[in-house]
Write a protein that binds this DNA or RNA. Structure first.
Ligand SMILES: [Zn+2]
Ligand SMILES: [Zn+2]
Ligand SMILES: [Zn+2]
Ligand SMILES: [Zn+2]
Lengths: 151, 151
DNA sequence: ATGCTAATTGATACTTGATATCAATTGATA
DNA sequence: TATCAATTGATATCAAGTATCAATTAGCAT
């Protein structure tokens, strides 16, 4: 009888592993529950640092399982390690703040419709797509306004 | 009086470096002219292999200059080194064959219009975007058709 | 509950991609 | 041609991530 709040999200990530026939281990519980506590996107190395009790290999392996299960999305960062974030809806895209790196999610039906319509103009079979919007996030905008030279 | 075919492209990449106030050196000439001979996208390591006479550091540095100059685009590959391709038009996106990795370019005004319209629905200021379409390219489609089990 | 066995773990070594260092070289200009 | 800052590239180092494999453990059968 799952009563749901913070706990239930935790169960979800572990469930994603269950569903793949993977065993419930304390290492996997530590990784998944830590991921759920992080609100922003994170890197693998960051998780390793925050979970010194779990081996690097296990952190990387668990992340890979979660990505394979579709529970995490892996977000390429051009000048650094990929970031991961919980996939809360099936298909979505990301916003990335160019200044602070904060990651957000969005879904937009028009975008999807246009992407589908591209099939006619592109050679080969479309099998998927990826899209990132680079932004200056509100908190970075606020920070730069208050820090302006005009005092 | 630039008469233009293959040669003229070569001049362009070197020019991109000139325009940044960088010196013309034989190493840079080797790197830029090799890049122009490659029709597909390439990785930095691939260039190093193909230019054993040029030091790794110089290959990486020259690529970075070209990217900074906007003459090359850097394309994130989730499970490997980024690929580079000559930026033939100002703003464009890429197709990537999931099977063989072949990279293509496209531009589509509707896509750009939709991206612009997203501003209203996204928190913060949009400063750019990136998009990749994953495909199975025609040659991979042909290969899989001829290699089918019914053969 | 106990034992069995395959799955899992994690320390270590390694691979790959890329950057920092810095003495030697070279391009541009006077 | 002399000068000197820019450039080069061998080397060391760093960073991200994977392979190995002996030790441990989860899940199941009894
Ligand atoms: Zn920000
Ligand atoms: Zn989409
Ligand atoms: Zn292909
Ligand atoms: Zn665009």
């Amino acid at each position: 009888m799952a009563t749901a709040t913070t706990e239930s999200i935790s169960v979800n990530l572990i469930n994603a592993l269950d569903d793949r026939g993977l065993r419930r281990t304390s290492a996997r519980a530590a990784v998944t529950s830590r991921i759920e506590q992080i609100s922003d996107a994170f890197t693998a190395e960051q998780l390793c640092r925050e979970l010194p009790g779990v081996g690097r290999a296990t952190v990387y392996r668990t992340i890979r399982h979660l990505v394979d299960a579709g529970a995490l999305c892996k977000l390429p960062i051009l000048d650094g390690a990929p970031k991961y974030s919980i996939a809360r809806v099936e298909h979505h895209h990301h916003t990335i703040c160019s200044r602070c790196g904060a990651v957000g999610e969005f879904r937009h039906s028009t975008v999807e419709r246009v992407m589908r319509s591209l099939g006619k103009e592109i050679d080969g079979d479309i099998v998927g797509h990826r899209m990132e919007i680079f932004i200056t996030c509100n908190s970075c905008l606020a920070a730069s306004r208050s820090g302006e030279s005009g005092g």
